[in-house]
Amino acid sequence: MFDTYFTVIWLTIKLATVVTLVLLCVATPLAWWLSQTQSRFKPVVSAVFAVPLVLPPTVMGFYLLLLLGPNGPVGRLSEMIGLGTLPFSFTGIAIACAVHSFPFVVQPLQNSFEAIGKRPLEVAATLGASSFDCFRNVIVPLARPGFITAIVMGFCHAIGEFGVVLMIGGNIPGKTRVLSVEIYNHVEAMEYAQAHWLAGGMVVFSFIALLIIYLVNQKAANRSIA
């Protein structure tokens, strides 16, 4: 019993961590571009990356399954370069989860980048800072609340992910069976007591995580007023 719980919780945390790290790497440049660009394609790009907010998770899971499956374009590519088929593996659910959580990471980052404005960057450039210096010593500290919100939102969204992971992962014990799917299993087996415990744990966890975001943001807000 505790063995299964441990496996499930460990897998869930691993998934959320991997997804958050990958998203930070991918979403930061995109959010930066969106915050700075004057391009007329900006609305189109913004819309494309916000689509996961709208689509029902099972619908998205279904299309990702077709896309990543052995007959889909991405699936063919991944087999060609020796990665094998992605669905029903940890890599597969990580990719699906990252796609679905994308807007939750991009949007807070974009907002905080936009809030910095042009002035601090111009000043830094005048003082001779390289663009990397500028990013590390000006943008990251100023956008810190945005990064924290993005990390917590991305992590929490990946922890709570259900429809996409069930479809792409296939509910396989030890490989793709994460916490939300385990709760679903308990409910299907009418083991409501176990389901309540796991669901209760998730409520406590998410409350703490969200509390952290709001505390940090409030602190940042107070600091900027002072």
Binding site: T58, L65, P87, M167
Partner: peptide, 11 residues
Amino acid sequence: ALYAQIKNGAP
């Protein structure tokens, strides 16, 4: 859902 997964190579 299982049917769709099996068609797409579920193990």
